[in-house]
Design a protein around this nucleic acid. Structure first.
Lengths: 128, 128
DNA sequence: GATTAATGCAACTTTTTGGTTGCATTTAAT
DNA sequence: ATTAAATGCAACCAAAAAGTTGCATTAATC
């Protein structure tokens, strides 16, 4: 036998994609790290409302200082998850969902790869 | 008018769900934080292959010490992303994809909420 | 022009993280 | 019984993160 039917090739492709992304993408871990803080997750949940919010507005929902919030927003911005626009004396922040989409796709890929692996293991067990 | 058609209610439900999850889930930020490191992402990519791997095996793919890898595995375990089984003098690690699925669903929710918000803004702009 | 609101910038402290080394322990193999 | 392999455990270190305070700056408003 060839050892490679169609579904096997797709499975290997998926596995290679996943490893390639994880190995090469400098920013992916950064995105996850940016999401890995309760304060920043709350900020994102607020920004999901779609508008552009000032630092003062965003600080109102937190327990920490305005400068602390600014630092968190900067972390999110460095990860490409939010962006800011200047308007008068205000600095408005809004969501930039591209990187979050990318992170979501990676998690989907992990889930798919896991499913593929389970299927393989099951097939192996049944062949024994 | 009522101000609440069917799609608006679904949108609000989604928004409330998102805020509830972000506010209450202590572990969600932990999961993202666990994913937010290149070494740990690579470990996960390896574990996606489906098997159970020893610490020594997992160390082979990295640049850091065995004890360093153990620490990373412990972080992943604390986040519920991997689990270990003892087998003889080895300690085998495998993926536990439940929390990753949960994280993925959160990112999906963020994306949906964002889309809903854009639709609302568009409708508002057209009504003006 | 003086005031005030919103923010920027910088120094500083504390805690966490990522990593190491050294040695002890457990278990398999000879 | 000895030896070797795989791991556990603890101390330690450096760098980064999370947060603060104080003061400077910018830009509306009266």
């Amino acid at each position: 036998m060839s050892g490679h039917n169609d579904s096997t090739m797709h499975a290997n492709q998926n596995e290679n994609d996943l490893h390639a992304i994880v190995q090469t993408s400098e920013t992916l871990a950064n995105v996850f790290a940016a999401l890995g803080d309760p304060t920043r997750l709350k900020l994102i949940a607020v920004l999901c409302a779609g508008g552009a919010f000032s630092i003062a507005q965003l600080t109102a929902n937190t327990e920490i200082s305005r400068q602390g919030v600014t630092k968190h927003l900067q972390v999110l911005a460095d990860a490409g998850v939010v962006r800011d626009v200047k308007l008068g004396r205000e600095r408005l922040w809004q969501l930039e969902p591209g990187q979050i989409e990318e992170a979501k796709r990676t998690l989907e890929m992990i889930g798919r790869q896991w499913d593929v692996a389970l299927t393989k293991l099951k097939a192996f067990a049944e062949s024994a």
